[in-house]
Write a protein that binds this DNA or RNA. Structure first.
Length: 884
RNA sequence: GCCCGGGUGGCGGAAUUGGUAGACGCGCUGGACUCAAAAUCCAGUGAUAGCAAUAUCGUGCGGGUUCGAUUCCCGCCCCGGGUACCA
């Protein structure tokens, strides 16, 4: 049978669609397996070859698990809110919904052409009002939830205890108190603003160079009324939850770093001439004896009080200058420390000495208390600062492990030592404190106990995680179900009135000064309540993360108009057993999703504490590119190859082959449609999996596609030719290899090692090609184990062997381990670790006889050189090593 | 700087718990088929030396542990990702 993939593939895709082969019933009698892809943003550019990488992997797992008797949930949908459709609307006036629809249709067509076994009846779209009705519903839940620190969980706002003193202040105070506890709140926030996108962005969306991750333009600070979510309340839970997850350690680490937990202590410093105290946060309270000055951030609320009249001018100037600096200047570029003395002194509580208080922008208001005690001898930043401004450096940790020179410098206060050591100068009998002789752990415990006793400090925990800025100044997003009333009250749109849909508009331009385009939708914007009170709808929309935060829950029950989903069904399907997608979502999407999920868990909406049990990141698919000796990139169509070297077609200059991201300018973008047309979907699937380990970054090579295409051709020609299929018993060697292959392919799928699984299939195919004939049973087994990878060809073969039904639910072949039992093993024999020859011996032969057989072997004499071996190591079924 | 990954032929990559380094595929070389090409098939292919059998070297570098190290330990170098004045 010739390999006519162009006929086979559409035929089976049609069959699967007509028969709803992959429609997933909520059949609770079977064990379930939920395999999820990170759903795509349907861009106008269509599918990139990176998409099918993850999709093929999950498809192989899905198809395999079905044959192992699992009820498999494998859905697909569209994360379709987003800026490109809105920008296109601004340019052309085309409604984003129309653009989105078109793009979704194209993505669906492309994905279907790959033969992926999705249950298309569960398709979802985040821009569908029937979907975002529930996104809005979750927002109302967040708004109406507070975090009970004692119980460590979120609870309905109706259960929030109101302190008596708040009650005494009246209704307004109670309302304020409540709104300060809600997980979602509306407030003035210093936010990142992208002038190019005319919208705010979350901290997480700003890259380290101060650019917006979406567009690459620099962002600026701006003060705006915004919606924020109190994700830091869940910091500890988000951290702890990681422990139970089967996720790549790297991703867990990134989340841990992002959450940024640190343990330390808060210490109150008395101030000279003021009754106020200055509170600092430190992770090293044990170095208190070395604190020779203090620093407050330029935004510190106490700064004006601290500043003495003589210092007023310079402090004001400094604060002014700092406020003009972007955060970028304050961090990356300006490594050189700046600061001015406030004129005020604090009292070091352990030494009783006066220490100066400075203001400097290397201390950030947003972390800890916005003030620090500076220990220049044992903190590099403080040391730098102290050196520059000539502040005393007092060493209180003797660096015993350091070399003599370093040690001397540190002890003299001329160098900084941040490692552990032995405390010195850390005793004050008057205050009843002595750390000398303790180690770091004991030192911290002792000083914290002392601070607590004195009532001037306590152990504390800090997190880097900040409130999540949750609103955007865009049209194409979920509207908030919120109304701002003329009297200042904020209320939610009632649940039975959801969804709040987007108004039709003629123009989609954002308003000036940070207003969303929705501010122009007069008919939609204004509302009046039953009492005639006027109100205005929230004009911001939710960020794109909103829809993707919970989509995996909607697949479970996508058409339910009564509830977000039926809890019985949720209880069956959750959690997601395997989630595959790009590593770029390591923190943002995955952290946000976990946060929402935990809130929903606390409220009893979902049944699992974590949404994604196992996570796997596919590596990016790159492409070869070419550059000159000076590093200039050359578009691929200007490159020619000669004898394995690359030259510029026009200049003749020799070029270097490099690996880079696919890009239009390099002309090395691979379109999946072209690959499918030329080699077929099965070849594309197979190649994407054969390129290398799923999590590796790897370059696309068209010759590689030809390689797997050749394999499918040979397999099709051999297994599709009735003359090669015989009756009778299978050849022993073939049978053994077949079972080894079943085992290898199955194990490799379970472990997501698809490249070596394909290699095993190739080895088997090469074998039978040489063998010439196989039994029908062998041929059928081959079709079954090929099916997860190349389902179209497998179905075709299966049909050829006389079956009328799909093989998608045929059970996975059993491995007959007894075939692997061998009576002899061909031992590699090495002398002093170098392999010299091989000898076949019975595996149950006693060691003494093995040694004898080895030494008597004709080749041994040559390596023994007349010597008597010192030792002979025999590792059964592994190796024999003769030690001379 | 700090935290994660990773360095294996010309290329993508294999190698259970330490046990024959280079599976499988690409590329290349030679051959068959063909008027010829493509396609297909067969053989070879880590480097060096040799007609060959074979030998020596070989998994980023330098040490170590071991009968035996791509694998474990110590010290470096390089590449990729994340993060960055978080006290």
């Amino acid at each position: 049978m010739d390999y006519k993939f162009w006929e086979i593939e559409p035929k089976w895709q049609q069959y699967w669609e007509n028969n709803k082969t992959f429609k997933t019933p909520n059949d609770f009698s079977k064990p379930k397996y939920y395999v999820l892809d990170m759903f795509p943003y349907p861009s106008g550019a269509g599918l990139h070859v990176g998409h099918p990488e993850g999709y093929t992997a999950t498809d192989i797992i899905s198809r395999y698990k079905r044959t192992k008797g699992f009820n498999v949930l494998h859905p697909m949908g569209w994360d379709a809110f987003g800026l490109p459709a809105e920008q296109y609307a601004i340019q052309t006036g085309t409604h984003p919904a129309i653009t989105t629809q078109k793009n979704c249709d194209n993505f669906r067509r492309q994905i279907k052409s790959l033969g992926l076994s999705y249950d298309w009846d569960r398709e979802i779209n985040t821009t569908d009002p029937k979907y975002f009705r529930w996104t809005q519903w979750i927002f109302t839940k967040l708004y109406n939830t507070w975090f009970d620190a004692e119980q460590g969980k979120g609870r309905p706002i109706s259960e929030l205890p109101i302190p008596e003193d708040v009650k005494a202040q009246g209704d307004a105070a109670v309302k304020t108190y409540i709104s300060e506890k809600r997980l979602a709140y509306y407030d003035n926030a210093q936010v990142w603003w992208c002038q190019s996108c005319k919208t705010v962005c979350a901290n997480e969306e700003v890259l380290t160079d101060g650019s917006h991750e979406k567009c690459g333009n620099q962002v600026v600070r701006k003060n705006l009324k915004q919606w924020l979510l109190r994700i830091p309340h869940y910091a500890e839970r988000l951290l702890q939850g990681l422990e139970q997850l089967d996720w790549p350690e790297g991703v867990k680490d990134m989340q841990r770093n992002w959450i940024g937990k640190s343990t330390g202590a808060e210490v109150d410093f008395a101030l000279d001439g003021l009754t106020e105290k200055l509170r600092v946060y430190t992770t090293r309270p044990d170095t208190l004896f070395g604190a020779t000055y203090m620093v407050v951030s330029p935004e510190h609320p106490l700064l004006s009080k601290l500043t003495t009249p003589e210092a007023e001018v310079r402090v004001a100037e400094y604060v002014q200058a700092a406020s003009l600096k972007s955060d970028l200047d304050r961090t990356e570029l300006a490594k050189e420390k700046t600061g001015v003395f406030t004129g005020r002194y604090a009292i070091n509580p352990v030494t009783g000495k006066q220490i100066p208080i400075w203001v400097a922008d290397y201390v950030l208001m947003g972390y800890g208390t916005g003030a620090i005690m500076a220990v220049p001898a044992h903190d590099t930043r403080d040391f730098e600062f102290a050196q520059k401004f000539d502040i005393p450096v007092v060493c209180i940790l003797d660096p015993k492990e350091a070399d003599a020179e370093t040690r001397a410098a540190v002890l003299a206060g001329n160098a900084c030592w941040t490692e552990d050591g032995a405390y010195i100068n850390s005793v004050n009998p008057d205050k009843g404190i002595n750390l000398n002789g303790l180690n770091k752990k004991q030192g911290i415990e002792t000083i914290v106990a002392w601070l607590q006793e004195q009532g001037i400090g306590k152990a504390t925990v800090n997190y880097k995680l900040r409130d999540w800025l949750f609103s955007r100044q865009r049209y194409w997003g979920e509207p908030f179900p919120v109304i701002h009333w003329e009297d200042g009250e904020i209320s939610l749109v009632e649940e039975n009135l959801l969804p709040v849909t987007l108004p039709e508009m003629e123009k989609y331009e954002p308003g000036e000064g940070g207003e969303s385009p929705l501010a122009n939708a007069a008919d939609w914007l204004y509302v009046t309540d039953a009492n005639g009170r006027k109100g205005r709808r929230e004009t911001n929309t939710m960020p794109q993360w909103a829809g993707s935060c919970w989509y995996y829950l909607r697949y479970i029950d996508p058409h339910n108009d009564e509830q977000i989903f039926d809890p019985k069904v949720e209880n069956y399907w959750m959690p997601v057993d395997l989630y595959i997608g790009g590593a770029e979502h390591a923190v943002l999407h995955l952290l946000y999703s976990r946060f929402w999920h935990k809130v929903l868990f606390d409220l009893g909406v979902v049944s699992t504490e974590e949404p994604f049990r196992k996570l796997f990141n596919q590596g990016m698919i790159l492409a070869f590119a070419y550059e000159t000796a000076t590093g200039a990139k050359i578009a691929s169509d200007l490159v020619e190859e000669k004898d394995g070297k690359y030259f510029h077609k026009e200049t003749g200059e020799e070029l270097r082959q490099i690996v880079a991201k696919m890009s239009k300018s390099l002309k090395n973008v691979v379109n999946p449609d072209d690959v499918v047309e030329k080699f077929g979907a099965d070849s594309l699937r197979l190649y994407e999996m054969f390129m290398g380990p799923l999590d590796d970054v790897k370059p696309w090579a068209e010759n590689g596609v030809k390689g797997v295409f050749g394999f499918l051709n040979r397999a099709c020609r051999f297994f599709g030719d009735p003359e090669n299929i015989t009756g009778g018993d299978e050849d022993k060697e073939t049978l053994k290899l077949l079972h080894q292959t079943i085992k290898k392919v199955g194990d490799d799928i379970e472990n997501l090692r698809f490249n070596t699984g394909i290699s095993a299939l190739m080895i088997f195919n090469n074998h039978v090609l040489k063998q010439g004939k196989v039994t029908k049973q062998t041929a059928e087994t081959f079709a079954k184990i090929l099916a997860p990878y190349a389902p179209h060809l497998a179905e075709e073969l299966w049909q050829l062997y006389g079956h009328n039904e799909t093989l998608a639910y045929e059970s996975w072949p059993e491995v007959d381990e007894s075939l692997f039992v061998e009576s002899t093993f061909e031992y590699p024999v090495s002398f002093n670790g170098k392999m010299r020859f091989k000898i076949a011996l019975p595996i149950d032969m006693p060691n003494a006889e093995v040694e004898k057989a080895v030494l008597e072997h004709e080749s041994s004499a040559r390596w023994l050189e007349g010597k008597t071996p010192k030792k002979i190591i025999v590792v059964p079924k592994k190796i024999i090593n003769v030690v001379l």
